[in-house]
C-alpha cells in the first residue's frame, strides 16, 4: 500500500517534470493575460485605485464601439456563408471523382493560404486595382474603373471577406474532403444502386454526414472573424478608407496606443475573449470533436 502510493507519487512527479515547461507557458501566455485583462477591465482611467464597471460603461457608450460591432458583423455575414457554401461545393466536386486531378486541384486551392496577413493585403490591394490587376476586365465589367471606385468604405467588408475566403478555403477543403473520405464506400454505392444521381448522392447522403464538420468550420470562422485586425488596419493606412477603429481589435489598439487607456483596451479584449471562449467551450464540450480527449 505505502510502496504503491509512493510509486504513484513518484510517477506523477515525473509526469509533472515533463509537463511543467509547457504548463508554465500555458499559465504565462494563455491564462495570465486573460486574468490580467479581466482585472484591468474593472479598473478605470478616471478613478484609479477603485474597481468597478466604469470602463465597460465608457466602452459601450463610445461612439466607435457599435459601428465596429456592425462592421465585424457585416464581415461575418458575408464571409461565413460564402466560405461554407464555397468549401462544400468545391469539396463535393473534388470528391465526385477522386484521383490525380482531384489531389492536384486540392494543392492549388491551398496555395493562396501561403499569402496571409500583410502580404495578403498587399496582393489583394493590387488584384483589386483596375489599373494593374489581371482581373481588370472583370472589375471594369462591375463598373469599377480605378482604385478610388474600389476602395470605398462601404466595400471594405466584402473585400476582407474575399481575402479571408481565398486564403482560408484550401485548408477547409482539405478538412471537408477528409470528412467525405470517411463516408463508407458501401453507403454511396447503395445510394447509386437505388438510382440516386450525383446531385442526390451529394445532397442526401454526403451532406448530412459531413454536417458536423460544417458546424465546426462555422464556429472557428466566427471566432477568427471577431479578431480581424491586419486587413482593416493596413487598408486604412494605404487607402484612407475605413478608419483606425473599423474593427473591435483596432478599437482596442486605439484605446491602448492612441489614448493610453489600458482599462478600456482591456475591456474590449475581455468582450472578444468572452465571445471566443463561448465558441470554444461550445466546440469542446457540446460537440463530439474532442470528446475522447476531454474524457480520457
Amino acid at each position: 500500500m505505502t510502496t504503491s502510493r509512493r510509486a504513484a507519487a513518484r510517477s506523477s512527479a515525473t509526469a509533472w517534470a515533463f509537463t511543467a515547461p509547457y504548463a508554465l507557458l500555458l499559465l504565462a501566455f494563455g491564462v495570465a493575460p486573460a486574468v490580467y485583462a479581466i482585472y484591468e477591465s474593472f479598473t478605470s482611467a478616471k478613478n484609479p485605485g477603485s474597481l468597478g464597471l466604469d470602463s465597460y460603461a465608457m466602452v459601450l457608450h463610445d461612439f466607435r464601439f457599435w459601428p465596429a460591432i456592425g462592421n465585424v458583423a457585416l464581415f461575418m455575414v458575408i464571409w461565413i456563408p460564402v466560405m461554407v457554401c464555397g468549401t462544400i461545393l468545391l469539396a463535393l466536386l473534388l470528391h465526385e471523382r477522386v484521383g490525380r486531378l482531384s489531389s492536384t486541384m486540392r494543392l492549388i486551392f491551398f496555395l493562396p493560404g501561403a499569402v496571409t496577413g500583410s502580404a495578403a493585403v498587399l496582393l489583394w490591394y493590387f488584384m483589386l486595382d483596375p489599373q494593374v490587376s489581371p482581373f481588370a476586365p472583370a472589375l471594369h465589367a462591375m463598373g469599377l474603373h480605378n482604385s478610388i471606385d474600389v476602395f470605398t468604405s462601404s466595400h471594405l467588408a466584402p473585400i476582407f471577406a474575399l481575402v479571408a475566403f481565398i486564403t482560408g478555403v484550401g485548408q477547409w477543403i482539405v478538412v471537408m474532403f477528409g470528412a467525405l473520405q470517411g463516408i463508407p464506400e458501401e453507403l454511396i454505392e447503395s445510394a447509386k444502386l437505388d438510382g440516386a444521381g450525383p446531385f442526390g448522392t451529394a445532397l442526401l447522403i454526403k451532406l448530412p454526414l459531413i454536417r458536423k464538420y460544417v458546424i465546426y468550420m462555422m464556429i472557428l470562422a466566427f471566432a477568427a472573424a471577431l479578431q480581424i485586425f491586419v486587413e482593416p488596419s493596413l487598408f486604412y493606412s494605404i487607402t484612407q478608407s475605413g478608419s483606425a477603429w473599423w474593427s473591435l481589435n483596432q478599437l482596442g489598439f486605439a484605446f491602448a496606443f492612441g489614448q493610453g487607456d489600458f482599462a478600456q483596451a482591456a475591456t474590449v479584449s475581455v468582450i472578444l475573449l468572452v465571445l471566443s471562449a463561448a465558441a470554444a467551450l461550445f466546440l469542446v464540450f457540446r460537440t463530439d470533436f474532442f470528446k475522447t480527449e476531454v474524457e480520457s
Binding site: 486573460a34 479578431q227 481589435n249 491602448a256 483596451a265 474590449v268 475573449l273
Partner: peptide, 13 residues
Amino acid sequence: VMPATVTVLPLFL
C-alpha cells in the same frame, strides 16, 4: 480553438 490574436492586447499589458 480560440484564435491566438484574442490575447494579444492583454499580452501587451
